[in-house]
Design a binder for these strands. Structure first.
Lengths: 129, 129
DNA sequence: TATCTGGTGTTATGATATAACGTATGCTAA
DNA sequence: TTAGCATACGTTATATCATAACACCAGATA
C-alpha cells in the first residue's frame, strides 16, 4: 500500500473538481473553474496536479494533454492501465487489464527494457457513440 | 498497401532529418536544424509532420511531444505499436507486437469501444542504460 | 481559359507548462 | 524555546508546443 497523505487546500479543490465529472479537463480549464475558489495562476493547478498524479489519484492523458480523476479504488496496484477516450462524447474509460500488462511486459523484457511508467491510450468511439 | 505519394521539399527535409538520428525531436528542434535549408516558421514543420504522420512514416510520441521516424518498413500493417522511450539516453525503440494488439482488442471489445488510433508508450531505462 | 486542389510563406495568436523568487507554515531536534 | 529544515504557497515572467487566417503559386483537368 502506498501512503496517501492528507491533501492540501489546492489539491482538494483540484481533485474535487475532477471527481465531479467523467470528462477529462485541461489544467487551464481547471484553473478557470477554480478562480471562484481563489486560484489565480497556472502553477497553483499544476503543482496540485503533480502531487495528485504522483499519488495515483489523478491520471494525465498524454494524447490530449488533459487530466482525469482515477476511476479505481486501488489504482496503485495495477501495472498497466488502458484509457479509452471517445472522440465524440469525450468520455474516458479506464481499465486495468492483466492480459495487456503481461503482453507489454513480454515486449519490454525481450528488449531488456525496464519499464517505469506506461501510457496506453486508445482513441475512438465508445459503446454509446 | 497504402499509397505513398512523393514527398514535397519540406516533407523531405523533415523526414531526412528525423531519419538520420535515433532520437526523437521536437517540432521546434527540427525547425532550428532546418533553418539552414530555408525553413523559417513552425507551420512549415508542423504541416510536413502532419502529412508524414498520416502516412505512417513518422510517429508522434505523445508523452514527450516529439517525433521519430518510423523504424519499420511496413508500419501501416501493424495494429499496435509499442514505443519504449529511455529516460536516460533518450533513444526510442519501436516494436509491433501481436500479443499486445490482441490483448488491447479484447479490452476494447469488452467495452464496446471502436479503436481508431492507439498510443502505447513505455518510459524507463533501455537495455544499455 | 477557368477553376480546383494542395502546398507554400508569413504574421499573429492560442494553448500548455515551467523557472525563479520570496513568503508562510508545520515539524523536529538541540 | 529556538534554530533549522522541508513543504506548500503566491506571484511574475517566460518557455514550449501548436494552430488560425490569409494571400500566393503551381500543376491538373475540364
Amino acid at each position: 500500500m502506498i501512503e496517501q497523505p492528507d491533501l492540501t487546500r489546492n489539491q482538494t479543490l483540484v481533485l474535487d473538481k475532477l471527481s465531479r465529472t467523467d470528462l477529462p479537463m485541461s489544467a487551464y480549464t481547471l484553473l478557470d473553474e477554480l478562480r471562484g475558489d481563489g486560484l489565480k495562476a497556472p502553477l497553483q493547478v499544476y503543482r496540485a496536479l503533480d502531487k495528485l498524479v504522483a499519488q495515483g489519484r489523478v491520471h494525465r492523458l498524454e494524447s490530449i494533454s488533459a487530466f482525469v480523476a482515477c476511476q479505481h479504488p486501488d489504482c496503485q496496484s495495477h501495472a498497466a492501465t488502458v484509457f479509452m477516450i471517445c472522440e465524440k462524447c469525450g468520455k474516458v474509460s479506464e481499465q486495468a487489464d492483466a492480459g495487456v500488462a503481461t503482453a507489454l511486459a513480454l515486449v519490454a523484457h525481450a528488449e531488456g527494457f525496464a519499464v517505469e511508467k506506461s501510457s496506453i491510450e486508445l482513441r475512438g468511439a465508445c459503446g454509446k457513440c
